[in-house]
Amino acid sequence: MVRYDGKTVVSLNVNNETHEVAARPSDLLLDVLREQLGLTAAKPGCKNGDCGACTVMVDGWPAKSCLMLAVEAQGHAIVTVEGLGGTAAVQKAFVEANAFQCGYCTSGFLMVCQALKTQHPAMPEEYVIEEWLQSNLCRCTGYQEIRKAVHMMYDMT
């Protein structure tokens, strides 16, 4: 087995800004966002692609940043919760719908919902919403409030 330990400079477009980071070939996008850019909204809930807490938006699509290498993210537009500002409909909807308790899964759900709206500007059918959101886990709520938040997000726009 060949080991690559050295770091290379990688240029990432995150939240409309270009960042240069030194990364190993094996570094996850999630770890680079959190440890090097201080963007800790994306969470390491399992680092196995099962929980969705690390979801970010890549070119308008949801992506689990624990399943993407930092080097793979070059040349793509990455958006994290920090990039939503504090004014996005999805954020307001989650607050209004009481769609979280501990808040740890929230960033991931916000980004899936934001991507859903990017790909489906008009509210899709319920089963489409379910299909999209099944990538993510919430242990606190019973999902009822999250479903309501998605509806509210669409109602706001």
Binding site: L39, A41, T80, G85, F100, G103, S107, L110
Partner: peptide
């Protein structure tokens, strides 16, 4: 803490 939790 609602807004802290939706803004990261």
């Amino acid at each position: 803490e609602a807004w802290d939790k939706v803004t990261g």
